[in-house]
Amino acid sequence: MKVSVLGSGPLTAPLSALLAVAGSDVRSSAGPEDAGHGAALDHAELLFLTLPGSQLAASLPGLGLRPEHRVVVCGRGPDEATGLWLSELVTRRTPCLRVGALAGPLSPAEVERGSPAAAIIASPYQDLRARAQAALHSPRCRVYTSEDLRGVELSASAARALTAAIGMSDAMGMGAGVRGLLLSRGLAELRRLGKALGANPDTFVGLAGVGEVVAASAAAEDSAYLAGRALLRGEADPHDEAIAVTAALVKLSARVKVDLPLLEAVHEVATGRHTAKEALKGLMERAAKLGGE
């Protein structure tokens, strides 16, 4: 399978490596200024965009994507300025229609160490799912597919926000019980938001949701986990992926009128409106609710 990897995000190298392991003919381009960019566009029947979500909107118009390209986005959305999911950015800003998203616990460090990995490819286009799976699936990397593009994009983004929440809680010295609480309540929030957006709730308990949170929150070097720990020190970087997607999800939830207390708490700490302790206290003091989750 002829594929190209466009961009220079943290996933570029590990993804290229896994594609090569799977036997794909891989070309890369860091961007339009790259001498091999045109060749990478002409070469591929499938393009993986590894640009971080925050850079995608600005980069897309210059990438030279064409109707024949099938595109898989690997960053995390939604785009904070427009509220669009990254796959939507591609279909709204380029002539490409056949688009999908890659998610799952693909840790760059673990891929580099040669550990087995897993990923999920979501797209409404069966042809794209099949091609992407064929390009990436190998004994090193199991690839699953889903047609629930919205659910996978939402899960993967919320996983970054939940991982940051867990990082913050760990930095505060909270125990495993709080981790369990954050994960389960976070998933409940995610289901509510997903329902409002027409996503399949089952997607959240898959690789893109639970799979990513469990993996990322156990990896000390994960960027979202580290961003969460930095929140306690009041050192939040608004451009950090986890912090940016949390802000975008909170904005999105307000638009669709869904209550996300946990993600809102993380956002409030990130924006300096509350300290981590105040945010946790606020969460714990919420009125008790009768009934299930």
Binding site: P61, R66, P67, E68, R92, T94, P95
Partner: peptide, 17 residues
């Protein structure tokens, strides 16, 4: 027309090279 108003070859959505 594509999103930027430029003419696009729509046949490439359904045809191979």
């Amino acid at each position: 027309l594509g999103p930027d108003g430029a003419v696009i070859d729509r046949r490439r959505y359904v045809c191979d090279a």
